[in-house]
Simulated assay, not measured.
Amino acid sequence: EPIDKVLQAIDHIDPSSKNYIEVLVSVDGPEPSLNYKIEQALENKQVRLTRILRKSTIISGSGEQRIINYDEFKKISPIEMAKEAFLKKYGSEMPTDIESLLKEAIEQTEI
């Protein structure tokens, strides 16, 4: 599991070193406790965590896989995510009437 590898690497940090670190983790899905686990592992280390980057695999419309980081993932529109999920599940493009209803629902919930 990726988080186990990260935690093992953190264990090998010299406790007396005073470094800044950036953690890059490749995840296959949501990992809600990732930040907590990393912060707990760093608790007694003399390091400062600058950021935690997550890389996730997504499927593009052409069927190709590509790796994006978590910040890029957050920028993908809900419509595009829904269209990708529909394509993956049903093997065809999302019908325009469903897309229109989804867009309407999203517009009504946006603040």
Results as ranks from 00 to 15, higher is better:
E1F: 09
I3A: 05
K5D: 09
L7W: 06
Q8Y: 01
Q8V: 02
Q8I: 01
A9K: 14
H12K: 13
H12E: 14
I13C: 03
I13P: 02
D14C: 06
S16P: 12
S16E: 10
N19V: 11
N19L: 08
Y20A: 14
E22C: 14
E22P: 02
E22F: 10
V23S: 00
V23R: 03
V23F: 00
V23C: 04
V23M: 09
L24W: 15
L24E: 14
V25Q: 00
V25A: 03
D28C: 09
D28H: 09
P30F: 08
E31Q: 13
P32E: 07
P32I: 01
L34M: 06
L34D: 02
N35M: 10
N35R: 14
Y36R: 14
K37S: 08
K37F: 00
I38W: 00
I38P: 02
Q40C: 06
Q40P: 06
Q40S: 08
A41D: 02
A41W: 00
E43D: 11
N44C: 07
K45C: 02
V47F: 07
R48L: 14
R48M: 09
L49D: 00
L49C: 11
L49R: 03
I52E: 03
R54P: 00
R54G: 04
K55S: 08
K55Y: 08
T57S: 02
T57K: 07
T57V: 07
I58A: 02
I59E: 11
G61V: 12
G61W: 04
S62E: 07
S62H: 02
S62N: 10
G63V: 01
Q65L: 12
Q65K: 12
I67Y: 06
I67H: 05
I68Q: 01
I68C: 01
I68S: 00
N69R: 06
Y70H: 13
D71K: 08
E72K: 10
K74S: 12
K75E: 10
I76C: 00
S77K: 07
I79C: 05
E80W: 08
M81W: 12
M81H: 11
K83R: 12
K83S: 10
A85Q: 13
F86G: 05
L87E: 03
K88W: 15
K88M: 13
S92V: 06
E93T: 14
E93P: 12
E93K: 15
E93L: 13
M94H: 04
M94A: 06
M94N: 07
P95L: 13
P95R: 08
P95M: 12
D97L: 05
D97V: 11
I98M: 08
E99S: 08
S100H: 12
L101G: 10
L101T: 13
L102Q: 12
E104N: 11
A105H: 14
I106E: 09
E107V: 11
E107R: 13
